[in-house]
Amino acid sequence: MNAVLILSPLGIDAKIGLMLLIFLIAVAVGGVGGLLGLGGGIFLIPIFTVFLDIPIRLAIGASIISVVATSSAAGTVYVGAGLTHTRLAMVLEIATTLGALAGGLTALLISPRALEGLFGLVLLYVLYTLLRPQRNNWASPTGLLDTSYRDPATSQTVTYGVRHLSYGLATSFVAGNVSGLLGIGGGPIKVPAMHLIMGIPLKAAIATSNFMIGVTAATSAVLYYARGYVDPVLAVPTALGVLLGAQVGSRLAGRVHTAVLARAFQLVLLYLAVQMLWKTVRG
């Protein structure tokens, strides 16, 4: 029978209760996702599969919908603030959408257990990218896609250009692939590459990555929708909750020290990664 019917035996009141619980989880996750530029799925999928026993493909379906929502919501704020490098985003989106298309098709073919295991490993990788020092101050014009923005925290105008575009395209393909396969945004894969190798200032890299995530996630989300892996009972409260949370989170993102906040969530990610891998091993 269709995988989307697995939750059907729940009674009516249980259904409303589940929707409310999912909504509350999504508000919290959306706020954190908006702040860290993490998209939210990285927290949603382990919580859904490990704690609510939701089949991973349905969790991915709900998550990828919410990732589209988060990115659009954060995009309306970031684009307004001028932090997003729109043109660079559009070039890199060619690679991310191709990756997402391939990833989405792959996810429909491989086993749920393999998806869970992969997710656990990607969580560990995300943790590694957060632990790595992420600072450089050598942002400068390069003659390639030069642009500038006014930093809301320091009130200074930062002008920078792009380096190593081909490396950026390759990383973007991988990020899109992971996004389509596992239902996450892929920000933690793109942001370090954009910042450390392409020379994009961190805030601009986060904003530009967030901006690309919506287009990337929508590419695989339409596949999940058409193939029956989007359950409205999960996806609607997740999307609405994440939207509410992200409105708050992304408005604060330019003003708080995201590095400090990221530290606090490394422990959460480690815990979720261990849970996810344990679930895979246990079967």
Partner: peptide
């Protein structure tokens, strides 16, 4: 949900 998914497509 469809409008949500269509938004990035329309944006592009």
């Amino acid at each position: 949900l469809l409008v949500l998914l269509a938004t990035p497509v329309l944006r592009v």
